[in-house]
Structure formats: structure tokens, C-alpha cells
């Protein structure tokens, strides 16, 4: 087991553990923090796979911006203690069951894929680097890139509509 393998298993364990903690935490703030940990571990995976640009963006956008926004909202609402009533256990059980069976089915279905033997050890390209990815983004993918601005415009208008006082 070399370093990258050790790192892989560590990050994997960390991400799954944090994800479970995020889901089960009763306090929303804790959930946010656990989620940030998941994002960090995923960024670690990105780095392992030489996707440096995405690793950085993931940290800045998700862990940085988005999760802060979440925290901000939670603070705003001042709901530290979870307001969820206790008697939601049935739903929890059902939810866990559904998620578990989904995992079970997916894993069972995908156990024998054509990708089984393929390993990610191999010659590393440079597509994960900022320069390379950037040039692709602004040449081949410029149309979707521009169009995604519409999304932000919508989001902006949405914030205006929803946030504006009548």
C-alpha cells in the first residue's frame, strides 16, 4: 500500500464518516461543519486524481462560500437546537431504509461492470490544471459558459423578487 492508496482510504473513511455525521447531527450547525469536512475530503480526492482546479474551486465555492451562506442562514434563524420533533422516527427509519436499499441495489447492479479491472494508476494528463481547463472552457465550452450566466441572472432576479419588501 503506497502513500496515495493510504491517502485514498483515509479520505474515503473520512468522507463517509463525516457524511454520516452530517446526516445524523441534531444540531444544524454541526451538520454544516461535518459537511464542510466532507467537502474537504472530496477535495483531497480531487488532488489525488490531479484535478487541481476543481479541488481549489470546490474548497472556495462549496466550503467557503456556500457553506458560509448556510451557516449565515442558520444563525439568522437562530435555531441552534434542532426543532425536529421526536416522533419522526418512523420517517427516519423509512428514509434510512430507502437510502440503504438504494445503495444496496446500486452496488449489486454495478458490482460487475466492465470497468472492474480498470485502475486509475496510469499516465497523468494535464486536463485538471487551471490553464488547460481554462482554455477548454473558453473555447469549446464558451457557449454553455455564457449561458450559465443566465442562471445567475435568474438567481439574482429571484433574490430580488423574494427578498424585496412589498
Amino acid at each position: 500500500m503506497n502513500t496515495s492508496q493510504m491517502l485514498f482510504w483515509f479520505l474515503t473513511a473520512l468522507s463517509i464518516l463525516s457524511a454520516l455525521m452530517m446526516v445524523t447531527s441534531r444540531n444544524p450547525v454541526h451538520s454544516v461543519l461535518w459537511l464542510i469536512l466532507v467537502f474537504f475530503s472530496i477535495s483531497g480526492h480531487y488532488i489525488l486524481m490531479n484535478a487541481q482546479f476543481l479541488a481549489v474551486v470546490n474548497m472556495i465555492v462549496y466550503a467557503g462560500a456556500i457553506m458560509v451562506l448556510f451557516l449565515f442562514v442558520i444563525m439568522l434563524m437562530n435555531t441552534k437546537a434542532d426543532a425536529e420533533p421526536r416522533h419522526a422516527n418512523r420517517m427516519r427509519l423509512a428514509g434510512t431504509l430507502a437510502g440503504g436499499s438504494l445503495l444496496l441495489v446500486l452496488v449489486a447492479a454495478l458490482r460487475e461492470t466492465e470497468l472492474r479491472g480498470i485502475s486509475l494508476e496510469g499516465p497523468e494528463g494535464d486536463i485538471g490544471l487551471v490553464a488547460r481547463l481554462g482554455s477548454i472552457l473558453f473555447t469549446e465550452y464558451v457557449v454553455p459558459f455564457e449561458l450559465s450566466s443566465v442562471l445567475f441572472l435568474s438567481a439574482m432576479v429571484g433574490a430580488v423578487i423574494i427578498g424585496r419588501k412589498n
Binding site: 430507502a98 437510502g99 438504494l102 441495489v105 446500486l106 447492479a109
Partner: peptide, 9 residues
Amino acid sequence: VFCMVLFFI
């Protein structure tokens, strides 16, 4: 989700 699982099966 249950229906999704069903579809998979």
C-alpha cells in the same frame, strides 16, 4: 426513491 429502487430491480 422506492419507485426508483423498484425500477432498478
